[in-house]
Amino acid sequence: MKFGVVVFPGTWSDRDCGWVIDQVVGAELQYLWHKDTDLKGCDCVILPGGFAYGDYLRTGAIARFAPLMEEIGEFADRGGLVWGICNGFQILCEAGLLPGALIRNASLEFRCEWTNLVVERTDLAYTSEILIEAWRIHSRPIAAEASKKRSPQEEGQQLVARVFDVHTHLYMRYMCI
């Protein structure tokens, strides 16, 4: 399986992703520059974290205009595997590949901690084949209006995993696919 890691100006965890794919997983790795116009035969495209285009206007708002994003949209429409991490997740929201938007977390603090995930769907490529070890929370995705317009079935399908707080025993809704 060939993994593509997208690099925008301002991306910083591209090398981390590359190291995991190349050194840990041992799969084929291809860096994809944001100005590229093809995915070079990648089977899975990863949008890593960082501050693409300096987070100008809103996080991810400018990155969606990168030439490669059009290719990624078509790739996703054909059922291709696209994985957004952190800033990459925000870019996917702004590009309309994921519903909803992200807002700042209530504490306005950077939070990096071990957390418990309850996986709701085990039939997806990521959840059935890849062990999720850590989940880093920067900001809180919200479903907002976009999800309210969706039927419960559609919403249920979008929900892959939920964060479970061991202290409060509360679930936080996490939508991603």
């Binding site: 206007l57 809103r58 708002a61 702004e94 909803g100 938007a101 807002i103 919200i142 907002a144 209006e145 976009a146």
Partner: peptide, 8 residues
């Protein structure tokens, strides 16, 4: 199209 995100 760009300046505001209509969701939020």
């Amino acid at each position: 199209q760009l300046l505001a995100n209509h969701v939020i």
